[in-house]
Design a protein around this nucleic acid. Structure first.
Lengths: 218, 218
DNA sequence: GAGAAACGCGAGCGGTCGCTCGTGTTTACC
DNA sequence: GGTAAACACGAGCGACCGCTCGCGTTTCTC
């Protein structure tokens, strides 16, 4: 048996120690990847193009990522974490707001984040990718949907689990669809689609969650 | 100047006469392309795979299509035409129905068609394609959206043109999003998402178009 | 300051892709 | 039956892709 270093109990054998320079390179590469993915999509994006955009040789890229898929996975994880953590979006306080304000409180930061990081939607929507990227991808998708489902459960505990899942899926799909329109336009048009999206979500959710503030307990 | 055959007035130089065998091959190839596009997406689909699926050599494929892009364009056009023509969906009679029935009348055939031809949604959503495929693609996208916009205009003539466009875009995006969920599930789950989609569309459109039958004229 | 490890480079390998081309077969038309 | 065009084949070309490898440079550690 290969018993490795003390604090490496399992079979993982990659205790690569990163220098500050390396962390900086990783960030450069992820930024470049976001840009290229956003421009061309995952499949059409080439690792050489990512390296070039980062001002780095292909060999250097592979010092930090084992393959192309790992780049997208890491980028997706970081964006996902940033979106869910930095803004306190799915909070209990928000869940208690009247529906219109709840939608504003949840959507506004999410929309702002996605406008600043358009690669996130690209990854969320990239469906034609080979390998197990799709599985990793689905996991992140679910991590968001779980929050929505949870929020719906708090607002309307009477809802059956199935219905709750369907509502969360539909609401999330609706959000992604609206987000695509929003990112596809600028200025006043963009604002108009933000309003349309909120209108659509309100129209869909009001009958299910009620328009008021506190959870619908008599 | 090269003056070609009598009934070929312009500069087009492709008077290829097709035999019945050729037309059959074209249909085989388009069917195969639909299957492969649906499985892998446009970018990842290989022309060799399409030819193989059609039981044909790569050379034969290129007897009928100048390049990969032309396959997707022709397939998209045929599906688009079939969907808009075969079912009388966006008819004046439908436009006069009460909103719930209008949604049923429009959505049910569209959903059925898309379940039978899942490649259509794949092409509608394929955003990461190079070349001018995207332009051809946008044209078809618009051809559907125009119908929706027209229908909205009939139902509510008071709506400003901008608002009408935004509403049509949002409704179409909402439909595509729901369609993705629907095609991603089967049996009872699929039926549940059909209901969710209709609920969402109703909630979005009711405030804009009214719930009644005739256009909202006092 | 010496050794090790992390970092960096870029030519190029193996493989797949879109597509071609030389050649042979089938069909339409006289 | 003869001939021209349409149809069919499949090996393989050139381009690009993800990724590697040998080797030089910088940084950390003692």
């Amino acid at each position: 048996m290969t018993e490795s270093k003390a604090d490496q109990p399992h079979e993982t054998v990659k205790p690569r120690r990163r220098q500050a320079r390396g962390e900086r390179r990783i960030q450069q590469l992820l930024d470049a990847a976001a840009s290229v993915f956003c421009r061309a999509g995952y499949t059409s994006a080439s690792t050489n193009a990512i390296a070039r955009e980062a001002g780095v040789s292909p060999g250097t890229l592979y010092q930090f990522f084992p393959n192309k898929e790992a780049i997208a996975v890491e980028l997706g994880e970081r964006l996902n974490r940033r979106m869910l953590e930095t803004h306190g979006v799915f909070t209990p306080e928000n869940a208690a707001l009247p529906l219109r304000e709840l939608i504003d409180a949840v959507l506004d930061p999410m929309i702002e984040f996605n406008c600043a990081n358009p690669a996130f939607l690209t990854l969320l929507q990239s469906s034609e990718a080979p390998g197990n990227f799709l599985e990793e991808h689905a996991a992140q998708h679910d991590s968001i949907q779980d929050r929505i489902e949870e929020l719906i459960g708090v607002r309307n505990p009477e809802l059956s689990p199935e219905r709750r899942t369907h509502t969360a899926s539909m609401a999330f799909a609706l959000f992604k669809a609206g987000l695509g329109l929003i990112l596809g336009h600028e200025g006043a048009e963009r604002e108009a689609y933000v309003t349309e999206l909120k209108t659509a979500l309100y129209g869909y959710l009001a009958p299910v969650l009620g328009t008021g503030g506190a959870p619908a307990r008599p």
